[in-house]
């Protein structure tokens, strides 16, 4: 809970002035290094590749978002399988993926997938760009493992009384999940899910190490060509915020909508 009452007006004003001064001097330090004419001309010249990078990041993120949900769904089913071997395997898989840095997963996955001639031929024949496909797949697996644990926590947090009530009104086991467990679990894990999706967008920047032409890759290319550091990476930060802030805002909006219900 955030404290809602405001402090005394003098302290509030002083804090506002101080923080504004701090932010302004930060911006001044950053922007004083810019040579505006040269910078803007360079940025203008590279606008297409930077825009392409941003769109690629959007595509990778959107693709991985869908992919990670599918993978999390499969893993959840695996965790609830009737076969103990499948349950054990799923748990182990999730732990291994979560225990690995995304960077090493990306590199290993990339060399396994794309260095395999058969696989890359198949990908080519169906018209998929190998690096992009590998990137989306790897990011989906990585995020999927995290989503699985978030969703499992949510599902297990639904009290037994709700399951009893749902059975008592005559729902079969699928209806219990669909009408009672999932809607409530989803509301509970929403903040965590949104956080994971924000991470996903940011994590997509790591895919540059396998040569996916995403936003960070293009910003670095721009920097390499022009040696304009701040000019390259400031737009990069803004570009990611354009993707992540709406996700956070959407999640906060949903949270507010559900607040009354979860109070019960």
């Amino acid at each position: 809970m955030s404290p809602s009452k405001s402090g005394n007006p003098f302290a509030e004003t002083a804090a506002a002035v101080l923080l504004t001064a701090l932010v302004c001097s930060g911006f001044w330090i950053i922007f004083s290094q810019l040579e505006w004419t040269r910078s803007s001309a360079a940025l203008w010249r590279y606008r297409d590749s930077l825009m392409q990078g941003w769109w690629a990041t959007l595509l990778v993120s959107a693709g991985s978002l869908v992919g990670s949900c599918l993978i999390a769904g499969l893993l959840l089913l695996g965790q609830r399988s009737g076969l103990r071997t499948v349950r054990r395997f799923t748990h182990l898989f999730v732990e291994i993926i979560r225990g690995m840095p995304l960077l090493s997963l990306t590199l290993i996955g990339y060399y396994v997938i794309l260095n395999n001639r058969q696989i890359s031929q198949v990908l080519e024949s169906v018209g998929l760009e190998g690096k992009m496909f590998a990137g989306i797949l790897l990011l989906s697996v990585f995020t999927g493992a995290y989503l699985t644990e978030i969703l499992r926590g949510g599902l297990e947090s639904i009290p037994q009384a709700q399951l009893d009530s749902a059975r008592a009104v005559g729902f079969d086991s699928r209806q219990v999940l669909r009408y009672v467990v999932f809607p409530q679990a989803l509301r509970r894990v929403l903040p965590a899910l949104a956080g994971q999706f924000v991470s996903l967008v940011k994590d997509s920047s790591l895919l540059m190490v396998i040569g996916v032409n995403e936003f960070t890759y293009q910003a670095r290319a721009f920097y390499a060509a022009t040696y304009l550091g701040v000019e390259a990476f400031l737009p990069l930060a803004v570009g990611y915020l354009l993707l992540t802030l709406p996700i956070s805002a959407f999640s906060h909006w949903l949270e507010r909508r559900f607040k009354a219900e979860t109070a019960a």
Partner: peptide, 12 residues
């Protein structure tokens, strides 16, 4: 029909 002590209703 069945009614428990509490938490019968679906809160959502």
């Amino acid at each position: 029909g069945f009614l428990f002590q509490q938490f019968n209703l679906f809160p959502h």
